[in-house]
Amino acid sequence: MAARAPLLPDEHEGEWSLTGVIAVMCFLACLTLGIALAVSRASAVWSEGLSGTGTILVPADGLVSPEDGARAVADAVRRLPGIAEVRIVSRAESDDMLRPWLGNVSLDGLPLPVLVAVSFEGSARPANAEMEAIVAAASPGALWDDHGVWREDLQRLSAMLSAISLGVLVLIALAAVATIVFATRAGLESHREIVEVLHHIGARNQFIAHEFERRFLLLGLKAGALGLLLAVGVLLLFANTDMLASGGEFYLPRLSLAASDWPWLVAVPLATSLIATVTARLTVMRVIGRMP
């Protein structure tokens, strides 16, 4: 005798459209999560890079030449504890940084400030107030920037994107629950005769619910895997897009996923099938519970 037939008949037509809807939801969830993870990672990397560095800006409007002022400031800062490197940014580098905004025009003769890049080591670094005082004393008019404003903006943006992603994920999950409740009710209605017969000949509610659970678990896994595959394809496409992969010429952080991020994406179809299974079970139990 062959394996036992399922107690609910196969429904190819309705099931494919439901699989499609759940797959799209899973795709959107994976994409949202993938982008959120990539943005969060890039923001963390950038923020970490910024937190260990600072920039001194020596304007070109002082009494001494900005190059002399920069050398004086660099010498003063080098003597401080916790300084790893002090480097005067060359004029050629400054011109390169301005080129994306100004285009390929000659910048000779423009009174550009000279930048001094400072990087720290360890946590025993001078306080901002101390840095400001030393920089101003070494070269009047020179300014110390610890990148704090950038870092705070970046962290705020990252937190906001994470919150939006979480909101979108919750909305997708709620939409999936609503869809599955609707589909389960429709399934119960179309199989009412079967459910009633099972109920009347003594099947426990859990037994009947299990039949629906099994169907929605498989559907959730199938749809989830499909959505994940599509999302992985799109994310890989993103990762290989020049601007997003390199940060582009505007010095944006690089958007990419690390190996440790992929398990989170794989968890999405598993969560989808779990949501599908639990929702189907609760819906069936509630409907059957109302039977005499």
Partner: peptide, 27 residues
């Protein structure tokens, strides 16, 4: 929750048979 156990002690021949059409006679 104790009613299914009671129902399993009852055999019913329904007037309109109420067989599951997608299952074989054996099933």
């Amino acid at each position: 929750q104790e009613l299914p156990a009671l129902r399993r002690r009852i055999g019913v021949v329904f007037q309109e048979f109420r067989l599951l059409d997608h299952l074989s006679a054996y099933e």
